[in-house]
């Protein structure tokens, strides 16, 4: 092989390998926003309500809760009436924000470090991060980021439990669809269930 062919081959190999890694913008998007979210829960210059509002605004910017809400009910997202869908999405948003606040609270103020990434395709990436808790315990979190027209948004989060990746939206979808299947697709039954869980979470919330 001539040296020119070697060069072409090397460039081709380099480019064929490149799509395996998410671009640095995607990684930076996750790093910056995840840090903003965790630091918002620890903002010393805000009171509890202020911190909560900042957290919710960051989460709204960082994630696509409407898309996640529709994804978690699968086929029922097309079967609900527009009014049912709107009521469900409202209920889901409140619940999701309460869930994320509850679990992220353990990591508030901590730094999120990007450890790697991979592209599923040009618009769908997984960014691996690590968060170290105050007691030294490390949490591996993977963020699924979609890029639509240059706008990045997180649509799912995975935790690694001994080699088992638990994707939160996928788990919720399995459970929500089971509830809907059991209740003849009743939006009211699901909304009632979600509102009950939200109330439980709010009752356990740490308001310090």
């Amino acid at each position: 092989m001539t040296s020119r062919k070697w060069l072409i081959a090397a460039v081709m190999i380099a480019f064929s390998a490149a799509p395996g890694f998410a671009d640095t913008q995607t990684e930076e998007y996750v790093r910056a926003n995840a840090n903003d979210v965790l630091h918002s829960l620890n903002a010393g210059d805000l009171d509890v309500d202020g911190r909560r509002l900042a957290f919710q605004q960051y989460m709204d910017e960082f994630t696509n809760l409407n898309a996640i809400a529709k994804f978690t009910i699968g086929k029922y997202s097309r079967r609900f009436t527009p009014e049912e869908l709107e009521a469900y999405i409202d209920s889901f948003r409140t619940y999701s924000l309460a869930v994320y606040e509850f679990y992220f609270n353990e990591y508030r103020g901590r730094d999120v470090e990007v450890t790697g990434s991979i592209d599923r395709n040009a618009h769908d990436s997984i960014v691996d991060t690590q968060i170290v808790r105050a007691d030294g315990q490390k949490l591996e979190v993977r963020w699924r980021v979609l890029n639509r027209g240059g706008k990045y948004q997180v649509v799912d989060v995975a935790l690694n439990a001994d080699g088992n990746l638990i994707w939160l939206a996928i788990e919720q979808q399995a459970q929500f669809i089971a509830i809907l299947d059991k209740n003849n697709g009743s939006a009211d039954a699901l909304i009632e269930k979600i509102n009950g869980m939200t109330a439980d979470l709010l009752a356990q919330r740490d308001d310090t």
Binding site: N64, N66, A67, I68, K70, F71, S77, R120, R144, L146, V155, D156, W167, I170, Q173
Partner: peptide, 8 residues
């Protein structure tokens, strides 16, 4: 992984 395109 499931696609989100149908929903989002």
């Amino acid at each position: 992984l499931p696609e989100f395109d149908d929903y989002d």
